[in-house]
Lab assay of single mutants.
Amino acid sequence: ALNRGDKVRIKRTESYWYGDVGTVASVEKSGILYPVIVRFDRVNYNGFSGSASGVNTNNFAENELELVQAAA
């Protein structure tokens, strides 16, 4: 299972961040479909780089994520 702070690569092909590595911000335990919230260094097309207006978190299912580096 994934944990907060883990570095993960995104495998959801239609995602803006496909192939990117993000950090797990939190994992919901309530049984929702996309329980893993991942935070990225770059914002998506809703904002400009360096601006706070873009979105830099997204929810994924565990099977859409590949663990790159476990949290220390």
Score class of each variant (00 low, 15 high):
Glu64Gln: 04
Tyr34Glu: 07
Ala72Val: 13
Ser26Cys: 14
Lys29Arg: 13
Ser49Val: 08
Ser15Ala: 01
Gly50Ile: 04
Phe60Lys: 00
Gly50Tyr: 03
Gly5Thr: 02
Val21Lys: 02
Phe60Trp: 01
Ser53Glu: 14
Glu64Trp: 02
Asn59Phe: 07
Ala61His: 08
Gly5Arg: 02
Ala52Val: 10
Leu65Tyr: 00
Glu66Trp: 03
Val55Lys: 04
Glu28Leu: 13
Ala1Ile: 11
Lys11Arg: 09
Arg4Ser: 11
Leu33Lys: 14
Ser26Thr: 10
Ser30Pro: 12
Ala52Glu: 13
Lys7Cys: 14
Tyr16Phe: 14
Ser15Thr: 01
Gln69Leu: 06
Phe48Ile: 14
Glu62Lys: 06
Ser26Pro: 00
Val24Asp: 00
Leu2Ile: 12
Gly19Val: 06
Arg39Phe: 11
Asn59Pro: 10
Val27His: 12
Ala61Trp: 04
Arg42Met: 05
Val43Ser: 06
Asn44Leu: 12
Val38Phe: 00
Tyr18Thr: 04
Asn46Leu: 06
Ala25Val: 15
Leu67Pro: 03
Tyr18Cys: 11
Glu66Phe: 04
Gly5Leu: 01
Phe48Leu: 14
Ile10Val: 14
Gly50Asn: 08
Lys7Thr: 06
Ala61Gly: 10
Val24Asn: 00
Leu65Gly: 00
Asn56Thr: 07
Val38Cys: 06
Val8Phe: 00
Val27Lys: 03
Asp41Tyr: 05
Phe48Tyr: 09
Glu66Asn: 00
Ser15Met: 01
Ala1Phe: 09
Trp17Phe: 03
Ile32Val: 11
Asn59Asp: 06
Asn56Ile: 07
Ala61Phe: 09
Gly19Ser: 04
Glu28His: 07
Arg4Leu: 13
Pro35Lys: 07
Arg39Gly: 06
Gly22His: 01
Gly31Arg: 08
Val38Glu: 01
Asp6Ala: 06
Ala25Thr: 12
Asn3Leu: 06
Leu2Glu: 09
Tyr45Cys: 15
Val68Met: 05
Val36Gly: 00
Asn46Thr: 07
Asn56Lys: 05
Ile10Pro: 02
Tyr34Trp: 08
Ala1Gln: 11
Ile37Leu: 15
Tyr45Met: 15
Asn58Trp: 15
Val8Tyr: 00
Arg9Val: 07
Asn46Trp: 05
Ser26Glu: 14
Leu33Trp: 04
Ala1Arg: 12
Thr23Tyr: 09
Arg42Ile: 08
Leu67Trp: 05
Ile10Leu: 15
Val21Ala: 01
Tyr34Asp: 06
Glu64Pro: 01
Asn46Gln: 10
Glu62Tyr: 10
Lys7Gly: 03
Ser53Phe: 08
Gly54Arg: 04
Gly54Glu: 05
Glu62Arg: 10
Ile32Phe: 08
Asn63Cys: 14
Val21Gln: 04
Tyr45Trp: 08
Arg4Asn: 10
Val38His: 00
Leu33Gly: 13
Ala25Asp: 14
Asn59Arg: 07
Thr13Lys: 09
Asn46Asp: 15
Gly22Ala: 02
Phe40Met: 03
Val24Leu: 01
Val43Cys: 15
Arg9His: 03
Gly19Lys: 05
Ser30Trp: 09
Thr57Pro: 03
Asn44Arg: 07
Phe60Asp: 02
Leu65Arg: 05
Arg39Cys: 15
Gly31Tyr: 10
Lys11His: 12
Val27Tyr: 11
Asn56Pro: 03
Val43Asn: 07
Val43Tyr: 15
Asn58Pro: 03
Ser51Pro: 10
Glu62Gly: 06
Val43Phe: 15
Thr13Phe: 11
Ala72Lys: 13
Leu2Gln: 01
Glu64Leu: 15
Glu28Gln: 11
Arg42Cys: 15
Arg12Tyr: 04
Gly50Pro: 12
Val24Thr: 02
Gly50His: 06
Asp41Val: 09
Pro35Val: 11
Trp17Tyr: 05
Ala52Gly: 12
Asp41Asn: 05
Tyr16Lys: 03
Gly22Gln: 02
Glu14Leu: 06
Val36Ile: 13
Thr23Arg: 04
Asp41Arg: 05
Asn46Glu: 15
Asp41Glu: 14
Gln69Ile: 10
Leu2Asn: 02
Pro35Met: 12
Ser30Leu: 10
Pro35Gly: 07
Ala71Ser: 08
Val24Tyr: 00
Gly50Arg: 00
Phe48Cys: 15
Asn3Gln: 13
Ser51Cys: 15
Asn44Ile: 10
Phe48Thr: 15
Val68Thr: 04
Gly19Ile: 05
Arg42Gln: 12
Arg9Gly: 03
Ala52Leu: 09
Ala71Thr: 08
Ala25Asn: 06
Val8Arg: 00
Asn3Trp: 04
Asp41Phe: 07
Glu64Asn: 02
Gly47Ile: 05
Tyr18Lys: 01
Gln69Ser: 10
Tyr18Leu: 02
Leu67Arg: 04
Lys7Trp: 06
Asp20Asn: 04
Tyr18Ala: 04
Asn58Arg: 05
Leu33Arg: 12
Ile37Trp: 13
Glu28Asp: 12
Ser15Gly: 02
Ile32Gln: 12
Asn44Gln: 14
Tyr45Asn: 15
Asp41Cys: 15
Glu66Ile: 12
Asn3Glu: 13
Ile37Phe: 08
Val38Ala: 00
Val36Asp: 00
Ala52Trp: 07
Ser53Asp: 13
Leu67Phe: 08
Asn63Leu: 06
Phe40Arg: 01
Ala25Pro: 05
Asn46Arg: 00
